[in-house]
Design a protein around this nucleic acid. Structure first.
Lengths: 163, 163
DNA sequence: TATTGTTATACTCTATAACTATA
DNA sequence: TATAGTTATAGAGTATAACAATA
């Protein structure tokens, strides 16, 4: 950005370690940094299965809730309907799930996992469970159960404030 | 996706609440949901100042580390150098910070907040502190200090596994 | 009229390659 | 040769408006 306001002054150059104290005191900042690192590891965990966090999540909910509609799924995953379409497209193209027109409401689809989808689900769930144990097992002074309870409390509290 | 494989079967339609049990047992999934909610609230908090999470973070580090280089900042914020450029552009265009060519190395810039930048910093830090208290104050059975320690432990552990 | 799934689109965030000017 | 900042670009992720089919 060489603009006309540039100046070259008698400057003491910055030296030493960057102080991020005023960011590290923020829970939100630490949540972002921690989640980014966790997600990177999860992505590697899911790569052999051709899945990402969102396609994994969608597959799990479809296997666990056979026949659910895309609209239900989009609410459950907090994904906008238009964005869910391409996710479902991807899973369907790989024959992991199928869209079935509902007789009761021919506007909607019921989503079901195929045998192949359920088999991939089994394998992926095992890998994700190992990934979770690797990262969240043996935490100092807190159990996974407690940690999840804290996160859910935070989610509810933050949502209550915005919405 | 009306393709030739579509079928309309005698399907029991899904009914009842969607079970996301197998996602909610995952710490990573809860981290994502919680962080999304926190970030949405933070965004509202920062809106009056014309800041987002990333521009806020950059401003804080520049105020706290006068003269630091963009390369240092990009490492500290875990943002790629090219992506930091537009962030710095934005803060400079608003005269919140200034790029100063370093005499010691004329390839680099030292970044400094202007008076206006420091004044906005003061106000924004107060607002963010209130936002944090609102969401993370009075948590059940855990202090903010403990929560941050847990998150940093997770970040380090997950990074150690990937990198 | 309203809803389901869809298309089109746009905006943010992120990642990589290649350029320039300096070292 | 290597480094700092930059440009260009491409890929995710996310959000909104509007449409066709159906309710």
């Amino acid at each position: 950005m060489l603009n006309n306001k540039e100046k070259t002054v008698q400057n003491e150059e910055f030296s030493g370690r960057v102080s991020d104290e005023n960011l590290r005191v923020l829970t939100g900042y630490n949540m972002k940094r921690a989640f980014n690192a966790v997600q990177a590891d999860l992505l590697q965990t899911l790569r052999p299965f051709g899945l990402r966090m969102i396609t994994y999540s969608a597959l799990v909910l479809i296997v666990d809730n056979p026949g659910l509609r895309q609209s239900h799924l989009s609410v459950a995953l907090a994904v906008e309907r238009p964005n869910l379409v391409v996710i479902i497209d991807e899973l369907e193209r790989r024959d992991l799930i199928a869209r079935e027109r509902l007789m009761s409401d021919r506007r909607a689809y019921g989503l079901r996992a195929t045998l192949e989808g359920r088999q991939l689900y089994e394998k992926a769930v095992r890998a994700v469970t190992e990934h979770e144990t690797k990262i969240f097992g043996n935490m100092d002074g807190v159990t996974v159960k407690q940690l999840i309870a804290e996160l859910r409390e935070i989610e509810i509290k933050a949502k209550g404030n915005v919405k």
